[in-house]
Nucleic acid binder design. Structure first.
Lengths: 210, 210
DNA sequence: ATTTATTAAGAACAAGTGTTCATATTTAAT
DNA sequence: ATTAAATATGAACACTTGTTCTTAATAAAT
């Protein structure tokens, strides 16, 4: 993963910000240049075209937190923590919304999702499928260990994932209007807690002898 | 609610389709005109500007199924149906994805949400808040009637709403790539079923006498 | 049938678009 | 210090954008 520096980095960051705020098409090269304080033609010393900037941003997406909700941990190494796993995942979603760059990348992703097929492939494979399948594997192991009720693990993964995604979208929207996100930010953890309580297998009440 | 006819209707429909597919900014007046088979200047006999078309579409949103998930039914009239209410709502979401126009409106909404503050206000007030609050009222009544467990009804409403929204988004995305949506479409009902089972208060087991 | 709106066409305009070019300035390497 | 490479400038180009204008065709009203 190549990191940009100097002017090239500034162009990249400014473009990401503007693309996320206004959309790719609505953002002009002059606007990017002006924000940095350089001439528009100077951009072309760093990126061959406007689309090249777009490609660089999409490339960056692959290395962002967005697709690393599990921090590269394997299902069999974490599933035993039960409720803790869910809370941990919820917390990573929460942290993402606090990280300015991840937030911009997410907003950019949502902004361009429906008119960029390359992004849809990324979203589906690297973001949605990857996370849901890993979640599914975790739930499956929990079922085998009789920690949670038995059912379709992939469906369960979708049910757990979707509110997290939705709350993230909500926060991104609120930020776009400079509104407070604190109330929404609590929903991640509440969701994990609520969800676990609903799927866990309750310990059979121990009959008291006296 | 004024309905368009003739050329004006064609312009409206074509613009909605293109805005939903490519975004507002990326769609040109020439493109709209060409698709209909008229001259670009002819559009201006029906709409004063490109933005006027946009406004007309946003206006239409207010009358679409998107904000009428409850079909104008009041909470106190439906909550007693319990599981049936949830299934009904899930079904309306499913039907929305089958309705081409609603699907286009939803895709348009998502496409422009992050660069159009007017749309964000609409999304928040007329789509999100309105539905979640009505849901919340229903859950509250269910709690008072001891049909479901007691907890924060607004949170519960969010938890029920968010997967429906997410599945709708998934289907819209799949359609954009001409992929099959049948598997995703089953998730609405599964969600309602799953959710109800998790929150309903189980009848205490009747002790058999013999 | 004649008048009057309504809608269409076609050309044109002014502004904005991404991009290129020749040239100057700065930075890095020898 | 000199050379070479990288980065900046400012003007220009070719093209697209939304919109307007004049004029012609069509439809509605008298």
């Amino acid at each position: 993963m190549k990191k940009f520096t100097g002017t090239k980095l500034k162009i990249f960051e400014t473009a990401l910000k503007l693309f996320a705020q206004q959309g790719y098409k609505a953002t002009t090269m002059r606007q990017i240049a002006k924000e940095i304080g350089i001439q528009q033609s100077a951009i072309y010393n760093h990126f061959k075209s406007k689309e090249a900037i777009l490609d660089a941003i999409i490339e960056q997406l692959s290395h962002s937190y967005l697709i690393n909700v599990f921090e590269n941990k394997e299902p069999q190494d974490v599933y035993k923590k039960g409720r803790g796993v869910l809370k941990n995942i919820a917390n990573i979603f929460k942290l993402m919304t606090y990280d300015t760059k991840t937030d911009l990348l997410f907003r950019f992703l949502m902004q361009e999702l429906f008119n960029n097929s390359k992004l849809r492939v990324f979203y589906n494979e690297d973001f949605y499928q990857k996370n849901v399948k890993k979640l599914s594997a975790i739930f499956f192991m929990m079922m085998q260990d009789e920690m949670i009720e038995s059912m379709d693990p992939l469906f369960l993964a979708n049910e757990f994932f979707s509110p997290l995604f939705f709350y993230q979208l909500q926060i991104t929207r609120l930020k776009a209007d400079n509104q407070s996100t604190s109330a929404a930010a609590t929903l991640f953890e509440k969701h994990a807690e609520f969800f676990w309580e609903k799927i866990k297998i309750k310990e059979p009440k121990q009959e008291t002898l006296f």
